[in-house]
Design a protein around this nucleic acid. Sequence first.
DNA 1: TCCAGAAACTTGAACGATCCAATCCTGCCT
DNA 2: AGGCAGGATTGGATCGTTCAAGTTTCTGGA
Lengths: 330, 330
Amino acid sequence: MAEKVTIATVARHAQVSRQTVSNVLNAPHIVREETRQRVQEAIDTLGYRANQAARQMRTGRSRLIAVRIEPTRDGINGSVLDRFLHGLTETAEAAGYRTLLYTATDAQREIDTYDDLLGSYDLDGFVLTGTDHGDPRTAWLADRGVPFVTFGRPWDDPGAYCWVDVDGAAGTGEATRHLLAAGHRRIGWLGWPAGSGVGDDRRSGWREALRAAGVDPAGLARETVDGIAEGETLARDLLDAPHPPTALVCASDSLALGALQAARTAGPAVPVIGFDDTPVAAAVGLTSVSQPLGDAAARCVDLLTAVLDEPRRALAPVLLAPSLVLRHTA
Amino acid sequence: MAEKVTIATVARHAQVSRQTVSNVLNAPHIVREETRQRVQEAIDTLGYRANQAARQMRTGRSRLIAVRIEPTRDGINGSVLDRFLHGLTETAEAAGYRTLLYTATDAQREIDTYDDLLGSYDLDGFVLTGTDHGDPRTAWLADRGVPFVTFGRPWDDPGAYCWVDVDGAAGTGEATRHLLAAGHRRIGWLGWPAGSGVGDDRRSGWREALRAAGVDPAGLARETVDGIAEGETLARDLLDAPHPPTALVCASDSLALGALQAARTAGPAVPVIGFDDTPVAAAVGLTSVSQPLGDAAARCVDLLTAVLDEPRRALAPVLLAPSLVLRHTA
DNA sequence: TCCAGAAACTTGAACGATCCAATCCTGCCT
DNA sequence: AGGCAGGATTGGATCGTTCAAGTTTCTGGA
């Protein structure tokens, strides 16, 4: 087994002091170029790697960011988180950070976990997903001045903290305009009950697009909790109405999948558009609004590292535009 | 902001020395019960948490395990990893470990990452997924005596290292017997080209089940790379043969989904069974073989922590039985 | 030539935990 | 009463790094 290579080993090898080696690593500009090269050579030759624990102990920073991995809820939306996590890890690595996972079953436990992670691991920052109205987590973190970024807007107070989100309204708007362009006028909406920020946002995109085209959206919307069976029931209800819509835009792929079942038995082909571009959508050929998850993750890391490098700077939130993936259901 | 609470703070508060506090944490049995309680009270009152970095520097152990997050390949299989990761994180937390993510595009880069993680973060162990024939990663880790567990058998040499896996043959066997019990005799197989350990294993379950029932499997199998379109092509080929099968067992949900498309147009209802029980299967009602991913992840953590606690002990591998989830395609 | 001032480099201390070896109790035996 | 064994407790050293302060070297202008 090779000897442990520390900063002292490198210093001896390059004939400089420990501090100079440290400077080469952390503040190269204050070291003379010639010296810098000599030290760098020694580092490469010896295969030196800075001991993260020692560095962390001195600086109080771990170069670790944490993100929660949620239990796969419905199953259908699982891979959304998957793609987000991958993007996050990749971008974080490029920025010199590592990603730590944690689980939590409710907000209070999650806060306990923050406390633990901050206390024992000196975590640098958090990426939160799926925030909702009056979320206690963001308040807790903000109170303690812990750097964090959320994937999802703060629906209560837009300026409360730093966030990245996908413009759901733009997505459903685009979907609706796509159907309008294909000649449809009565375009229905299958969504979630009012009150969820994400759901209301997505619905508004559909509504505004219809209004802009001079169509009255009244009576064309139905709302329920997420699920395939729920989507089917609702779609059937909508398609059986006196003046049924000739096309449907949905708040999720789950609802859209249900709608697809209903539409299939309803006679003439009714186009259906989902939301999230899940693998299921790809598998069954469902046209869907696709979120740029890789981008979103990257922007989360960008914002978080920016805050970490310069704590007092206020950063502008990021709103990304989704895109419509056309398949054969619309 | 409250003062930083260190082991010295606790010691002062409980009127003991630092070492005694340390003993309460790491070797409670050598401390007098009365003293232990007093110290514990101080810990709770002050909200003390051991600084992981300092501990790690002294002991060389980080209580961190790493696992790779793969880019979502086909998309359809993405959530498998998702569920595995969640189980892993949960079990690791219960055992006092945290889970670190990393990405890697090929085996060499992955090995570089090991080197980095071990060198800078003192990682305690790794969980590898998707090992294949002659995998350089396991050799590298084994050479250096780094603790690791794989999710997936070593197909070359069963005793090479410690692993957890799901018995694919048992799963396809059960699927096949289910179809036999329903009266089918000519049951087809849609799988991957020979040479992949996982694929060969799954195919053997189908073949042996047929043989046990006295059916000759010759001519009933087709092989291709994974994918929905590929599955459809292959299934059509099989169903158009002179003596077509009356039911199909597939190596993956992707293939099964393709087969479903082919079966739909092929006239009489041909039952199809997939593998992995992905969200897509649940969404379209595809009967599928379900892997106990949560259990598998838990066993991985169990084995890894066992190795970490007692490095020289040889541990028995774990082979878990999958279960058949019946839906309306079979 | 000399010196001020900047730049480059070095030294000692500190971060917070654990390990080690020495010391202090406490109860027990003679 | 004195001595002794044993466990409980103590202070000091240590892990590898960075910070703060100190020292040397270089540069340029009078």
